[in-house]
Design a protein around this nucleic acid. Structure first.
Length: 463
RNA sequence: GUCCCCAUCGUCUAGUCGGCCCAGGACAACGGCCUUUCACGCCGUCAACAGCGGUUCAAAUCCGCUUGGGGACGCCA
């Protein structure tokens, strides 16, 4: 495969969802792996449901995922005349014909077939009527009467369908607009697409499209139909399963590399490897090892994947990425330096940026606004616990400086000098500083808070 | 209804033209270690070849049937 051209062709009737995102990732990877080209085509021929805002949203998601495309966007609505030219050609060569059957009549034909237990289809009434152009007339393909359409799918292997299953499909509607299958074939040909990777739900369209390619005398591309992504309950993915659009994951604070990594492993594998860098993905993704079975979406594994990237990425990058979420949860602008300190303390305790930002709250809020968890306060703010905190206040007040090491040794000295165990002192201190029994290392917490804020928090407990 | 596709642990999967698989990895769950909380990390446990027939010395791997899923059957995409 020296020459590979792929494309992703969403219709702008909604945001980019994870199923489409995965298809796009596969297409992008295949092109990048072979050093080919990756195109983006907006299939907006459904005038009623297509919206520019969705195109914008899809493009934004593509960029966020890092899926760059080559060349300009193709909008199908701008190419009506092109499709028409190909339909005319089919008319001229006798591969297509005019039809004036009304939708009602066609539906009656389908009903009749259904009654007989056959596949509902158009019965070819106008096939031999030699009708010409006219108002209300569409153009249909003259499907071969016998034979099979066979193709070798990149993921499902050889698929064979008898032409008797197909009817004379409409190529151009009465209003002059091409139908989906017609437009796709023309575009894929004109864009020089060599590999069509798309959702499972298109397998039944493929034989129809191949018929059009053949009638037009055009080379047929390679097809690869990836199975659908199911919900955790193995049912079709729906709104019930929570966030589905990639924009929603972005808003929840997921990292694009985590989503890409997770999605690519849904239906594709490289031995036992789970985590991949972008370069590894490009290196390994050659169109093989695609799984023909549908896969269930597992939010837990996505979170794990995201947590992994949060832990291993550059601290400064993480801080920069979490900043907008910190703003969003109402903690204001903390500045890069403080954010990095916080990220260092909490990155291992959060699975996404939003949760990470939220975990900063106890340390960012002023002492007066700190809320003590009732259960922890009751358990650790005992008379003895308060006594420790009083003495510690004095110890901390006496510290020469207030960096983590200094505070740590002071705390250790207090414990050792009084013949105590850390377990007796740490819980009340932690609860006083964090508001609950959680957080990061005490020395880091105190160093971050600073002497004044630390003492103030102790004072709130000791009175 | 007709046609097409699919079928390994709860989930994602490895299993490259049958033997090295009484089936491996990862997530989840559970247990332990570490420990100044919570995490991280490390160690371990639980857990699957849908069923039935063939072919073969040998089948998760090949064939058939059954069952169970999914998809398609528009002048939607």
């Amino acid at each position: 495969m020296s020459h590979v051209v792929t494309r992703f062709a969403p219709s702008p009737t909604g945001h980019l969802h994870i199923g489409g995102a995965r298809t796009a990732i596969f297409c992008w990877l295949l092109a990048r792996h072979y050093g080919g080209r990756f195109h983006l085509r907006i299939e907006d021929t459904d005038l009623l449901r297509s919206k520019q805002e969705y195109t914008d949203s899809i493009l934004a998601s593509m960029r966020w995922l890092g899926l760059d495309w080559d060349g300009d966007l193709t909008y199908q609505t701008q190419r009506a005349d092109v499709y028409s030219r190909y339909v005319d050609k089919l008319l001229e060569t006798g591969h297509a014909y005019w039809c004036d059957c009304t939708p009602e009549e066609v539906e009656a034909m389908r009903e009749e077939a259904r009654q007989k237990g056959l596949k509902p289809r158009y019965n070819g009434r106008c096939r031999t009527r030699e009708l010409g152009p006219g108002v209300g007339r569409c153009v249909r393909l003259k499907t071969p009467l016998t034979g099979k359409v066979v193709f070798d799918d990149m993921v499902k292997g050889r698929i064979s369908v008898d032409v008797s299953e197909l009817d004379d499909m409409v190529l151009r509607r009465a209003d002059g607009m091409p139908t989906y299958n017609m437009a796709v074939v023309v575009d894929d040909y004109e864009m020089g697409i060599t590999h069509v990777i798309r959702g499972d739900d298109h397998v039944s369209n493929t034989p129809r499209q191949i018929l059009i390619y053949e009638a037009l005398g055009l080379p047929v591309p390679r097809f690869g139909h990836v199975p659908m992504i199911l919900g955790p309950d193995k049912q079709k993915l729906s709104k019930r399963h929570g966030a589905r659009a990639v924009i929603e994951y972005q808003q929840d604070g997921l990292l694009p590399q985590a989503l890409v990594n997770y999605l690519v492993r849904l239906g594709w594998s490289h031995g036992n490897q789970e985590l991949f860098t972008r370069d590894e993905l490009i290196e390994y993704f050659d169109g093989n090892n695609l799984n023909p079975a549908s896969a269930a979406f597992d939010p837990a594994k996505l979170e794990w994947c995201n947590a992994h990237y949060m832990r291993e990425m550059l601290l400064s990058d993480l801080a920069r990425l979490v900043a907008p979420f910190v703003q969003q949860v109402g903690l204001g602008d903390l500045g890069q330096e403080r954010l990095e300190a916080l990220c260092l303390m909490f990155r291992e305790r959060a699975n996404n940026l939003k949760a990470l930002a939220e975990s900063f709250r106890p340390l960012v809020l002023p002492a007066a606004e700190l809320v003590h968890a009732e259960k922890d306060a009751k358990k650790h703010f005992t008379d003895q616990g308060k006594e420790h905190l009083r003495k510690l206040s004095a110890v901390f007040a006496a510290c020469e400086s207030f960096d983590a090491d200094t505070v740590d040794s002071a705390l250790n000295a207090y414990v050792a000098d009084n013949g105590l165990k850390f377990k007796e002192v740490a819980p009340p201190l932690r609860t006083a500083l964090m508001g609950f029994m959680g957080g990061s290392h005490l020395k880091d917490i105190m160093a971050f808070l600073g002497r004044e804020e630390t003492l103030e928090r102790l004072k709130r407990v000791t009175g």
